[in-house]
């Protein structure tokens, strides 16, 4: 009996979600002790939830590509392009008029249009990677540059401002202490979870990631699935762009380029294997929450320059890679 519980404990310890969960509790306790009355408040939790949604969704976009054995470096630029398009569309049509039925329809319509743009960008990546066999890294690097260029042409290199207040007010809508942005993030995560664990497409994605040749010989149409995977990634990126414009009430062609590193960090933190074939959605959600909590905690120390965060993120990425590697390999040899 004792042996059995030991095995059970080991099994839990090997679960990346459980590891992150422990880490999250540690961060919460640490934060509550270091910044009493400041960290563990409803207002702070709301702002954490609001901030993490954008790159949480970007991380989901990188996640599905990473699981399939590739990577998407263009997500941030797709998000920026979509933010710019929706910002321009809304400021041209609604302007500064008050909330009205037509404004609501316009928001719905332009969101749909922008999501379509995201799908097209993603499908372009998918075709490059699936059909034309360009390595994912190179393809998305190039398409990222192309999309950045398109955004620059649209805005003449300036930031888009003057987004209607009707639109930016939407991010104030709350469900309990959870802002709309976070609800969208959770919605995306649930859909992705369903796709990855309940559909054959999710299973095929994992297969392509772990061994694309074996996947091909077992009758999977790799090309078609890769196009689908990157289209989903582009769609998620566009959602992130909409949310970010909503929160910041502005958009810029090269906004948040460091988010690429950050979303990869979230993926690796959440237990996604950078070599593909392994990963889970709940891990991504928890990782995004933990990392934003750490970021907020670091922001509370006034004299700590924001650049220290870069050091912490970079070091964390490397450390998590190594820890996951060691734990996974131990698991393999034990089995």
């Amino acid at each position: 009996m004792a042996e059995k519980s030991g095995v059970y404990l080991k099994k839990i310890m090997n679960d990346p979600i459980f590891r992150i969960f422990i880490l999250m509790s540690a961060v919460v306790i640490f934060g509550a002790l270091l910044m009493p009355g400041k960290f563990l408040t409803a207002g702070n939790m709301t702002s954490i939830a609001k901030q993490l949604s954008e790159y949480g969704i970007l991380a989901l976009a990188v996640f599905i590509c990473m699981v399939s054995g590739g990577i998407d470096l263009s997500v941030v630029y797709i998000a920026n392009l979509c933010g710019i398009i929706i910002g321009t569309m809304l400021s041209k049509t609604i302007g500064s008029s008050d909330f009205a039925g037509s404004a609501a329809w316009m928001i719905v319509f332009s969101s749909a249009a922008v999501m379509a743009v995201g799908c097209v960008c993603g499908a372009l990546n998918g075709i490059l990677i699936g059909k034309l066999k360009v390595p994912a890294m190179l393809a998305t690097l190039g398409s990222g540059q192309l999309i950045l260029g398109i955004s620059t042409v649209i805005t003449n290199g300036q930031a888009i401002t003057g987004v209607p207040a009707v639109f930016t007010k939407l991010s104030g809508i709350k469900f309990w202490i959870l802002p709309l942005n976070f609800q969208v993030f959770i919605f995306c995560a649930v859909i992705m979870y369903m796709i990855m664990s309940r559909t054959s497409f999710g299973l095929r994605t994992l297969l392509i990631g772990s061994n694309s040749k074996a996947a091909f010989f077992s009758g999977i149409n790799n090309n078609r699935d890769l196009v689908k995977i990157y289209t989903i990634s582009g769609l998620l990126a566009s959602v992130s762009g909409i949310i970010s414009t909503m929160r910041m009430s502005s958009a810029k062609p090269d906004y948040g380029t460091s988010y690429i590193m950050f979303s990869i960090l979230i993926c690796v933190f959440g237990g996604t294997s950078p070599n593909g074939g392994k990963g889970n959605v709940p891990g991504i959600v928890l990782a995004a929450i933990v990392l934003q909590m750490v970021a907020t905690l670091m922001n509370m120390f006034q004299n700590l320059s924001t650049f220290y965060r870069d050091i912490v993120w970079g070091a964390l990425l490397l450390i998590m890679l190594i820890i996951n590697y060691i734990l996974d390999n131990r698991h393999v040899t034990k089995r």
């Binding site: 990577i71 960090l265 050091i311 912490v312 970079g314 490397l318 890679l321």
Partner: peptide, 13 residues
């Protein structure tokens, strides 16, 4: 790519 992204962030930080 992922390793050097991490070290890049550390160096510039």
């Amino acid at each position: 790519l992922i390793v050097t992204l991490g070290t890049s962030s550390v160096f510039s930080g």
